[in-house]
Nucleic acid binder design. Structure first.
Length: 468
RNA sequence: GGCCGGGUGGCAGAGUGGUCAUGCAGCGGCCUGCAAAGCCGCGUACGUCGGUUCGAUUCCGGUCCCGGCCUCCA
């Protein structure tokens, strides 16, 4: 079954065929590391990370790059404010980003190129663009001439005239055309900078992605992905630079854009200040529930973020892990894991994660009802295999149900002691005493279940159990 | 203003020209000392107005509302 992807370049669903099946290339725009990222920033790495797993499963040899932007005016501002070199800021927050993404079950990409490690490539690309007449030098800036690229605006479907009509920003006087954008700009002595033929300076925002794609993935890549808010100008400009730097070769064959996360109906964005930082959320809620929540809507749709969404996700995972716990006695090796056709078909259909999660619920349902050892084994194999592909259900169920125990106010020994006391009370049919003990545990946030093989317990409620 | 996307049951959220999404919550039942979990069952959802059609939530047009981008943005 082919993988169908909605190619935003053509605004239609297309069958994905890599240019070279031996070497599939994927580039996702990564963060600017000047602060902790918010949960909206986590959507691309999570959803396109699932795409990476899907591609890797099918083609084996995937080269997946997700950059780190470590030179930028916001980083400069943060460094000046805190009185430290920019490297202190960028190292701190690129590490935090890696940790936050790992917590959300995002596998590291194959390549994590940093902009500052590619200044040479950036300068060479600038020179090539100048030589070929697609860029010019003005007041120590290197600017891309949008008029030199007839396809400019093709991705975002807008003409340069339209952009002019709606322009919100004053046009710098040295631009030949208002749509021209900066490839290289001068730095003052206190700002980070590198020597260049046009004086000491630093790269513009868009050129780094073009330079890093070229350096690591080649002139033409299979898939380029990122947030829909990057479609213009960032991705439009990348296309212009790369295409012109490569003599007209196609830059990216597929363009995928994820929708925005909303807070109270408005886009979650740092400039609006309505953000939840991943760093804080993973302290407060089980990270896997955050991942589930991010995958619960189709990636192209907007997703309303709310506490209720997280709690709903926790309860859904409770049920799925409950099924796995019922299958505790079954052992499934890595090679025995399976990916049911309906589940994979959903992901192949433009990464339809809600449908895939619906299929996962069905898989769990039949696994729960399986009677024979063979069926139960197949159920668990499917649950783990499908879960692995989408990055869920890979924990030990007991770990899931005891979420946050290490930080919570309860301790396991005390719980076990009360449970033993309750067991004895039940043996002598002192149910009043037994119910009292259950209530006592419940007051501590511990819920218990009596089963054939004794009593088990879990931490109840949503995420706040993990709060310190 | 220009370009683009969206309005589905209490909530989240897929999908389809004519029996079922799915999950969460709720209700009833089974099970249970009681619970919980699990199982079974239940609720006549597709913004609005027209059109096409034997039949439209699904196609077409109008309209209302919401959101995104228009050089900070995932």
């Amino acid at each position: 079954m082919p993988i169908q992807l909605y190619n935003n370049l053509h605004r239609r669903l297309e069958t994905f065929e890599p240019a070279d099946p031996e070497r599939v290339t994927l580039y996702v725009c990564g963060p600017t590391v000047y602060n902790y990222v918010h949960i909206g920033n986590a959507r691309p790495p999570v959803v396109f990370g699932v795409l990476a797993r899907l591609l890797r499963r099918r083609y084996g040899n995937l080269r997946y790059a997700r950059n780190i932007t470590d030179v930028d005016d916001k980083i400069n501002a943060a460094a000046i404010e805190q009185g430290v070199p920019i490297s202190v800021i960028t190292e701190r927050f690129s590490r935090a980003y890696a940790e936050d993404m790992a917590a959300l079950g995002v596998e590291p990409p194959d390549l994590v190129p940093h902009a500052t490690a590619h200044i040479g490539e950036i300068l060479r690309m600038c020179e090539r663009l100048i030589q070929s007449g697609h860029a010019y030098v003005a007041e120590q800036h290197v600017l891309f001439a949008v008029d030199s690229f007839p396809d400019y605006g093709k991705l975002s479907r807008r003409s340069t005239d339209e952009m002019l009509a709606g322009a919100r920003v004053e046009v710098a006087p040295y631009k030949r055309s208002p749509g021209d954008f900066v490839l290289w700009k001068p730095s003052t002595p206190e700002l980070p900078g590198w020597d260049s033929p046009w004086g000491r300076g630093r790269p513009g925002w868009h050129i780094e992605c073009s330079a890093m794609c070229e350096a690591h993935l080649g002139d033409t890549i299979d898939i380029h992905a990122g947030g829909v808010d990057l479609q213009f100008p960032h991705h439009e400009n990348e296309i212009a630079q790369s295409t012109c730097a490569h003599g007209g070769k196609v830059f990216a064959r597929f363009w995928l854009h994820n929708g925005m996360l909303n807070m109270d109906g408005r886009k979650m964005s740092k400039s609006l200040g309505n953000v939840f930082r991943v760093h804080d959320l993973i302290d407060k809620y089980p990270p896997e529930a955050l991942r589930y929540a991010l995958l619960s809507a189709h990636y192209r749709q907007p997703l309303d973020w709310s506490e209720q969404l997280i709690e709903q996700s926790i309860r859904t995972l409770d049920r799925l892990y409950g099924t796995l716990r019922e299958l505790d006695d079954i052992s499934v090796s890595q090679s025995e894991r399976t990916v049911p056709a309906a589940f994979e078909a959903a992901l192949n259909d433009d990464l339809n994660t809600p449908q895939a999660l619906a299929a996962l619920a069905q898989i769990a349902g039949s696994a729960r009802q399986a009677q024979s050892a063979v069926e139960r084994h197949a159920g668990k194999a499917a649950l783990l295999g499908a879960g692995e592909l989408i990055g869920l259900l890979q924990q030990d169920p007991e770990v899931w149900f005891c979420r946050g125990l290490a930080n919570a106010s309860v301790d396991a020994e005390a719980i076990e002691k009360l449970l033993e006391e309750r067991r004895l009370a039940k043996l002598r049919r002192d149910f009043g005493r037994a119910d009292m003990l259950r209530q006592q545990l419940k007051d501590q946030g511990v819920e218990i279940e009596d089963g054939a093989n004794g009593t088990r317990w879990k931490l109840a409620g949503a995420g706040n159990v993990n709060q310190h």
